[in-house]
Design a protein around this nucleic acid. Sequence first.
DNA 1: CGAGTACCCTGTTGGC
DNA 2: TGCCAACAGGGTACTC
Length: 256
Amino acid sequence: MGRRWVAVTAKPGRIFRTPAPAAARALRGARLEKAGRRGKVLLLEFDGGKVLLVHLGMSGQVLLVPPAEHPEGHVHLEAALDDGRKLVFRDPRKFGFYRLAKAGETDSLRELAGIGTDPTAPGFTWEKFSADLRARKGALKPLLMDQSFFGGIGNIYSDEILFASRLRPMRGVETLTPVEAKDLFHSVRDVLASAIGCGGTSFDEAFTDVYGKPGLYGGRLAVYGKQGEPCGHCSTELKLIRSGGRSSVFCPHCQK
DNA sequence: CGAGTACCCTGTTGGC
DNA sequence: TGCCAACAGGGTACTC
């Protein structure tokens, strides 16, 4: 934070939603003043009213490394900092994106339009959650992953949240009792807080913080990726279902 | 309009 | 052992 980007290179490609060369030119000499987030989108705010939007997709990574280090493969953006270090943005599968915007226009960008309440922010209250729930219908799983419902939850944590609240992925929102709804609310907060506290979930060396350190939540996953294994609570075999091209794992005994 | 599906992309994994 | 198909994932665009 507060570092100036003294040299910037951006590799043109589909992943850049604004022309890469222009973005690199605009960011050269800019000072990073604030790093924020809206849902899964990172917002890097620079002096001069420039904002860089970064979505890491599923394989995106940002690394802070010494200048002599050259992380391998699929580097899309690289910035030399005025303290001698280097920021490297990678994304092998290119499901993410980069966009350079002006500070004033971020609210009108389609990348940020309709991203719901952040479930880790103070604005995420029981009152808000229960009101939002009542306005929806359909299965819980796609709802949790719907970025307009709340921003930032993907496949891993939606499965874990549903297990923690003992609700099945395909359970209809409109069938929840008040007690179940409240359970769900607390599970959203608890699961996310504990996952963030662990530094997230790392499947391999690509899921790390900027220093290359992996997250430790993987060891605490209850259901995600564990189809066929016994449930940690009741030993029933965990089942996998597929819906809308996305997989969900749940315990047929614990989750109703 | 809602639900379902194909596509984008590439590294990893499982089956033959 | 080696090759190739299948799969994973978020978001969008499309069809039924």
